[in-house]
Design a protein around this nucleic acid. Structure first.
Lengths: 341, 341
DNA sequence: CTGTTAGCGCTTTCAG
DNA sequence: CTGAAAGCGCTAACAG
C-alpha cells in the first residue's frame, strides 16, 4: 500500500504538495499537479482515512441508530429510508455506519461519537423520552431524529405530521358515514405510534365522537398483531365499521383475518393503513394509505445533520412534513349504523 | 474530550500503562489497573478509533456492499440479512459500514478498503462475473460473498443450494401430478437468479420433461413482475398447471393477478415462492416456499471474513447451505392434463 | 507556488 | 510489571 511519502518521492515533491493535490488546492502549479497525479496513479495511492481523521477531527462518516433493529429492518419502509439516507450522504462524501441500540455497545448512543468513529448520528424511530437523548444533548453531539421529536438543545429532527394523517382519515371515514372508527396502535413505546394514537383521540373528540376504549387495539406494528386486532374487533358486541391501522403491515394482517372470516372489505368494513409499502397495492382490496415523503425526510435529515456537524455553535433544525394520501379500494360507505359483521 | 495523555497524568502512569489497561493486558498490577480505571471513569475517556486504526492497521469495521441497493433494501429478506450480519459482527467488536455499488465511490469495491475505512468486505448478491471481484482477488482484499459464488483466490462465499431448492419443488410438483411447470426468473444479471433458472432446466431434463421456452418468464424480483408473469402465462394456449417463482415477492404479485382473474390457487394452478418473507404467510392462500437459513448465512459469512482478515496467508472458505421447505397452501393436485384456467 | 516543522492519539518495540 | 522513544500517514501553520 503506497503512502503519501511514496508519492512525494516519486513525484519529487514534498508531502504537502501531494496533500494539496489530493485535496484539490488550486494553487499548485499545473505541471507539478500533473506529476503528482501520475505518481498517484502509478502507485495506486489512496489517502488513509484514519490518518486524515486523526488530525482533521473529521471522520466523514455518520452513524445510524436503530433502536429496534430487528423490527425496523423487517419493515421495507425503514429499509428504503436507510437507502435514501445513504443516497443523500454519498454525494457529500460521508459514509454510513450502522449501529444498534440493542447490542452491547449500542446501549450508549454516544459511544460511536466519543470513539470518534462518526461525526454525528441519525436516529430513527426513537423511544418516547429515551433518556439517552439527554446524553446526546448534554454532550452536544450532532444528531438528527427521524420520526421522532425532542426539544432538547442540539437535537434536530425531521418528522411527519402524524396528527394530520390521522385527522385526514377520520374526516374521510366520517364523510363515508362511519362513526364507529376503530384504531390499531403501533408499539406505543415509540414516539410515532403514540402520536398517531393521540391524533386519533383528538380527531374523534373534535368531531364530538365519543372515544371508546374498546375501539382501540394495541398492536406492535407486525402483520400478526393486525390479524389479532381483527379477531378482537370482531368479538365486540358493537364492532367498528371502519378501522385505522397505524401502519400497512398491520392493515395487511387485518385484511387477512377479515378474509378468513368472510368479512368483506370494504363492503362490510373499511380499513386504512399508513406508509404505502409496496405490498399495500398487492392485497385484495388494495389498501388506502398515506405515503410518507421518504425522499424529503432523508435529505432534510442529512442536510440538518451535516449542517450541525460543520457549525461552530450548536444548532438545531426541526421540520415537520406532510404525508400524501393514497386512495385505493379498502374503504366504502358505512352500511348503516349497526354492527359490521 | 479526554485523551490517553490526560488519563496517564491523572493516574500517574505512562501512556503505555493506560493503553495496556484499555486493552486488557493481564500483566498490569491490579492496583495500577484500578487507579487507571478510575481516571478513565472520571475523565470519561474513550480511546480514539482513528488513532488506533492508524497504527494498529485495523479499523475494526467491515464494509457491506449492495450492488443494487434500492432493490435490495426494499426486500425484507435482505434487510433481515443485514440485521443478522450486524448481530454477528457486534460481539466481535466490528462495526458495519454501508457502501453501495451505485453511487460514485461505490463503483470501486476496493475503495473503502484502500482508504483503510474497513478491514474487509461483505458483498451481497453480486452480479454474474462482476469484473470488480477480480480486483478484490488481485489485491487479496478480505471479502466474502453472500448469495453468490466465485472461485477466485482470496474470495470466500456463503451461498444456498439453489439447485436443490428448485429440484425439490420440481419433485414436489411432479408428485402432485404436474408436468407443465412454469418458471418466473429473477433478475438474471444476478448470480442467484441465474442459478435458480439453471436448476429449473436441469431438474426438468432429469425428469424427462421437455423444457419449453414459453413456460419461462423473465421477472425482476418485484411483485409487479410476478403480476405480469401471470398475465403472460394466462395468455398461453397451453398454460402451465404449476408455477415456480424465484422469490416470494413475485409469487405475491402472481397471486394478486390470479385472484383478479378468477383463477383459484391452488385449485386451478399451483404456485411456490422462495425466501419465506413475512408476507408469504399473510396471503390467501398462504404461499408454499423455502426458508433461507439466514442466521447461519450471516454468522458463517462473518466468521469467514474475520478469519480471513486476521490470517497472514490468503485464505478462503466456501460454504453452501440448504434451505428449509415451508409447505403451505398454494399447491394442489394437478386438475388434469389440460389447461389450468 | 512549495517546503519544513510539528503533532493529531495511540501502540509497537525495546529497555529497564 | 512499567516506561521511553519512535512512528503510524496525514495536514495545519508558518516560512520561504
Amino acid at each position: 500500500m503506497a503512502s503519501q511519502q511514496d508519492v512525494a518521492r516519486m513525484a519529487n515533491v514534498s508531502l504537502m504538495t501531494v496533500s494539496r493535490v489530493v485535496n484539490g488546492d488550486p494553487k499548485v502549479k499545473p505541471a507539478t499537479r500533473e506529476r503528482v497525479q501520475q505518481a498517484i496513479e502509478i502507485l495506486n495511492y489512496y489517502p488513509n482515512a484514519a490518518a486524515r481523521a486523526l488530525n482533521s477531527r473529521k471522520t466523514m462518516t455518520v452513524g445510524l441508530m436503530l433502536p429496534k433493529i430487528d423490527y425496523v429492518l423487517s419493515e421495507p419502509y425503514f429499509s428504503q429510508l436507510i437507502y435514501n439516507i445513504e443516497k443523500s450522504l454519498s454525494p457529500r462524501n460521508y459514509d454510513l455506519l450502522i449501529g444498534t441500540a440493542e447490542h452491547q455497545n449500542g446501549r450508549d448512543l454516544t459511544l460511536l461519537y466519543k470513539q470518534k468513529k462518526v461525526d454525528g448520528l441519525v436516529i430513527i424511530g426513537s423511544q418516547i423520552n429515551d433518556p439517552r437523548l439527554q446524553a446526546l444533548s448534554d454532550n452536544c453531539i450532532p444528531a438528527v431524529l427521524i420520526h421522532a421529536r425532542s426539544e432538547l438543545p442540539c437535537l434536530s429532527y425531521v418528522d411527519v405530521d402524524n396528527f394530520k394523517i390521522i385527522e385526514y382519515f377520520v374526516d374521510y371515514l366520517c364523510s363515508l358515514g362511519h362513526r364507529r372508527i376503530g384504531f390499531i396502535a403501533g408499539d406505543l413505546s415509540v414516539v410515532n405510534a403514540s402520536h398517531r394514537l393521540v391524533g386519533y383521540k383528538q380527531s374523534l373528540s373534535t368531531r364530538s365522537i365519543l372515544v371508546e376504549d374498546q375501539l382501540l387495539f394495541n398492536g406492535d406494528w407486525s402483520s400478526h398483531s393486525g390479524y389479532e386486532a381483527f379477531l378482537y374487533f370482531k368479538s365486540l358486541s358493537n364492532p367498528p365499521t371502519a378501522v385505522i391501522a397505524s401502519n400497512d403491515h398491520m392493515a395487511i394482517g387485518f385484511l387477512k383475518a377479515a378474509y378468513e372470516h368472510n368479512v368483506d372489505i370494504p363492503r362490510d368494513l373499511s380499513l386504512v393503513g399508513i406508509d404505502d409499502i409496496e405490498m399495500a397495492s398487492f392485497t385484495t382490496p388494495k389498501i388506502t394509505t398515506m405515503r410518507q415523503p421518504m425522499h424529503d425526510i432523508a435529505s432534510l435529515a442529512v442536510d440538518a445533520l451535516i449542517d450541525s456537524i460543520n457549525s461552530e455553535t450548536p444548532r438545531e433544525s426541526r421540520v415537520i412534513l406532510d404525508a400524501e394520501v393514497v386512495l385505493r379500494d379498502s374503504c366504502g360507505l358505512c352500511a348503516g349504523s349497526g354492527p359490521a359483521s
